Simulated assay, not measured.
Amino acid sequence: METSTQGADAAELLDAVGPAFSRLRRAAALNVEKNVSRKDLTRTLVLNIVQDGPERDSQEITVGVVGERLAVDPSVASRMVSDCISAGYLIRAASQQDGRRTILQLTDEGHRTLARFRSHQRSAYERITQDWPERERLEFARLLIKYVESVAELQDDSASG
């Protein structure tokens, strides 16, 4: 049976999650390793969306989809995509569903850039958690991935319902 102290401790812990996510977001922008520029952080947001692909069968990855997933204005999404195209990470291609629509595809350089960024992210995770027991590092990674997948499922349910 849970005591009122345990319940208060649990409530306090759960109340701290939101502010912790906010601090994490701000810290992520600062970069642990300092070898990824802010511009590259922004580019990887766009590249990850393109790599993640459609959320449903009829969807294709367009500038509009990038804007929706990043919750930015279409003009901001367009500038972000144009920057990735100028850098050689993305190309525009004709939609196979609607020839009037332009879709986005990763280039070989875009794939290499994402691989480098993932390596950087892993190094940062390992550095941040270097003093944690291995079991905790792996459990936190597993739970974080589970959390993100649950968020995606909720978004899917909201979109379909």
Rank of each mutant, 00 (worst) to 15 (best):
S82N: 13
N31G: 15
A20K: 09
D73Y: 08
F117D: 13
S160G: 09
E33R: 11
D108W: 09
D15I: 04
A11H: 09
E109S: 04
R43V: 04
A141G: 00
F140T: 08
N48A: 06
Q130S: 14
V46S: 06
S37F: 03
L30P: 03
L143K: 02
S95K: 00
V81F: 14
A11K: 14
D108Y: 13
L47N: 08
G110M: 04
R122A: 11
V76F: 04
A93P: 00
R101L: 14
T42C: 07
A87E: 07
L154V: 05
E2L: 15
R23M: 13
H111D: 03
V32E: 10
T129P: 01
E149H: 11
L154I: 07
D15R: 14
R92Y: 12
I85D: 10
E136N: 04
S123H: 12
Q155G: 14
E33F: 15
A159S: 12
Q97K: 05
T3H: 12
E33K: 14
A159L: 10
T102H: 15
S160E: 11
Q6T: 03
G161M: 06
E68F: 15
V17F: 15
T107N: 06
R127S: 05
R25G: 12
R56F: 13
A87N: 03
S22Y: 15
Q130G: 09
L143S: 05
S4L: 08
R100H: 09
V17G: 08
L24A: 15
H120N: 10
A87W: 06
E2H: 09
D108M: 06
I103D: 12
I91P: 00
D156I: 05
D108I: 12
M80T: 01
L114K: 01
G67S: 02
S58H: 14
R137P: 00
L45K: 02
Q6G: 09
A16L: 06
T129E: 00
R100C: 03
Q6R: 06
A10N: 04
D15T: 07
Q121G: 01
I145G: 10
I61M: 05
K34R: 12
R142N: 05
V151M: 13
E12P: 02
E139N: 07
T42V: 11
L13A: 05
E60A: 08
R135K: 07
V72R: 10
L24S: 13
R112H: 10
R122Y: 08
D83S: 03
S95F: 11
T107K: 02
I103Q: 08
L70R: 01
P133V: 11
A28N: 14
Q97I: 12
G7N: 08
R116K: 04
R43A: 14
R38E: 13
Q105W: 10
Y89V: 01
Q105D: 09
A27C: 10
A20H: 07
R92K: 13
R38W: 14
E12C: 14
W132M: 07
D40M: 07
Q97G: 04
R92H: 11
E55S: 06
I61W: 02
T113C: 01
T129G: 05
E55A: 04
E153I: 05
A29C: 00
V76I: 03
L14D: 07
I49Q: 01
D108V: 05
D108C: 01
V46R: 00
G110W: 11
A29T: 02
E153L: 14
K34C: 03
R116F: 15
G7S: 11
D15V: 01
A141P: 01
R92C: 04
I128W: 06
D83K: 04
D131G: 00
P19H: 15
